[in-house]
């Protein structure tokens, strides 16, 4: 069962969703995570992050857990995990296909 209704995830989407696998995260923690994980390769524009959080919430891939002053914290939902897993499988098969062709 697909976790996300429309298409595959873009790279920023993939990494933002991945960040939640570690637990509850707030916006700044997400950007730090993406930056560290990709060693700065994936540039996460602030507008992109803001929009992705709103989009993921709307698609019920993540949910807000608490609002503490200026900080909002989110966590991944079951649907979000499925979407991430599905994307991971897609990427794996992409890599396999590519490797097969190279050999």
């Amino acid at each position: 069962m697909p976790g996300r209704d429309k298409g595959g995830l873009t790279e920023p989407m993939y990494y933002v969703l991945m960040s939640f696998l570690h637990g509850e995260m707030c916006g700044i923690e997400i950007t730090d995570f993406v930056s560290q994980k990709t060693a700065g390769r994936v540039r996460m524009g602030r507008g992109t992050l803001y929009t992705l959080l709103a989009k993921f919430q709307e698609e019920k891939l993540i949910e807000e857990t608490q609002v503490d002053g200026r900080k909002r914290t989110y966590r991944i939902t079951q649907k979000g995990r499925e979407a991430f897993r599905e994307e991971l499988e897609r990427l794996k098969s992409c890599v396999l296909d590519g490797e097969e062709e190279l050999m």
Binding site: T10, E11, P12, M13, R43, M44, G45, R46, G47, T48, Y50, T51, L52, A54, K55
Partner: peptide
């Protein structure tokens, strides 16, 4: 409204997210 002294700064690095924001 945000402003950055970096004239090359980009708030949106993913066209799909910008498209989504504009659609909404």
């Amino acid at each position: 409204v945000y402003a950055s002294p970096d004239l090359e700064a980009q708030a949106y690095t993913d066209p799909e997210s910008l498209d989504y924001a504009l659609k909404k």
